[in-house]
Amino acid sequence: MEESCGKCTPCREGVRHLYDILTDISGGRGREGDVELLESMSRAIMDGSICGLGQTAPVPLLSTIRYFRDEFDAHIRDKKCPAGVCKELVTYWIVEEKCPGCSLCLRVCPTDSIIGSKKVAHKILTENCIHCGACEDVCKFGAVVHG
């Protein structure tokens, strides 16, 4: 997207649209029909662009659609990211059995969304959780998981 020189319309405008729609999908704001929208837009961009940039920019997108169509559907329909990659779509929780209550995650949480006291298993309040993953990174016991 940043590489487009901006000379011709399909590459300059179109690739940005593709990006916006993809961002929506990975943020759980995808809608039914978005995949088809991406495909037909991609076609027009590839056929209408002057140079190789616009002619090939949508290619990786089209191959991900071809081989990971079910992932797209999961994001759009179930608002789920099966691979646990899209930050906005995952939830974090603490496995009680593994948590010794060290309070490390509690202190590192930027939104104070983790409650609990020392030596007692902690809990993540999902309403305020911003899915930053800081708790998971800091936990020495592998008690924080996401999915």
Partner: peptide
């Protein structure tokens, strides 16, 4: 599609007003 890309930039497209970014442009 090419015309649509241009129209999406027109001032009458509210979605392009800056609020909420351009996320709705597609």
């Amino acid at each position: 599609w090419i015309l649509a890309f241009m129209l999406a930039r027109s001032p009458r497209e509210k979605s392009n007003s800056g609020h909420g970014g351009g996320a709705r442009r597609g």
